[in-house]
């Protein structure tokens, strides 16, 4: 489903990732663990085509970065749900509007959107808070809203970049449980974290990254 082949990317002043080879299969749950600045976010950005490899290639559902055209990027991203540490919710829209945004992009009808968003908010435990604005939600609720926004378009994979970074241990645990549930329904999850203690016993594949290089 996703393959990174000999991928290298460097920033002006530091190395992003070097010679990375990684495969993520359909429905798989993979953790990528490493300290801050080790290249986890760079890897995520390479997967969702925010960055392009200087060497090697990234393959996503048949799309190859070496032969990719700009107009293909939205199509690729429609199949990827993204969750960030900083939530990235739009502060001028309520919860419903935030979660509904990807469905408007897909061109769905209003009635369908209403139904799907309600179901999704129910699934992440935010039902009844549709008209709340992000600032009126707790950190955990905002992160669940972010999960709902990522999931609402039924992507094949969820990329979660340090999603527990701003959460207290209990809320972080709840979020991991939620991601497990999502994965159980067939969605692949690729999650970055620097908190080894939090994820070590969850029984999923774990990949380690350090100074831009993957370790066995």
């Amino acid at each position: 489903m996703i393959a990174l082949e000999n991928v290298s990317y460097s920033y002006k002043k530091w190395v992003g990732v070097t010679d990375v080879n990684l495969k993520i299969e359909r429905g798989e749950f993979t953790y990528i663990i490493g300290p801050t600045g080790s290249g986890k976010t760079t890897l995520m950005r390479l997967i969702y085509m925010d960055l392009f490899p200087e060497k090697g290639r990234v393959l996503i559902n048949g799309f190859d970065t070496n032969r990719l055209k700009n107009r293909h990027i939205p199509r690729i991203r429609k199949n990827i749900g993204m969750i960030f540490q900083s939530y990235n919710l739009l502060s001028d829209r309520d919860l419903f509007q935030n979660v509904a945004l990807p469905l408007h992009v897909l061109g769905m009808k209003r009635s369908e959107i209403k139904e799907i968003v309600s179901e999704m908010l129910n699934e992440v435990g935010l039902y009844g808070k549709e008209d709340h604005y992000p600032e009126e939600l707790s950190g955990g609720e905002q992160q669940r809203a972010c999960v709902a926004r990522a999931l609402v378009k039924q992507p094949e994979i969820i990329l979660a970049d340090e999603p527990t970074g701003n959460l207290d241990p209990i809320t972080a645990y709840d979020l991991l449980e939620l991601l497990d549930t999502i994965n159980g329904e067939g969605t692949a999850v690729f999650m970055a974290s620097h908190n080894y203690t939090l994820i070590r016993d969850r029984g999923h594949r774990m990949v380690q990254i350090q100074e831009g290089k993957l370790r066995a």
């Binding site: 969702y48 939205p74 199509r75 990827i80 993204m82 990235n88 945004l101 992009v105």
Partner: peptide, 16 residues
């Protein structure tokens, strides 16, 4: 800018 970023990430086309 945050709206543009959010739309890009959910797969919106440039015209959208």
């Amino acid at each position: 800018a945050d709206l543009v970023k959010a739309l890009k990430l959910v797969g919106a086309s440039n015209m959208f």
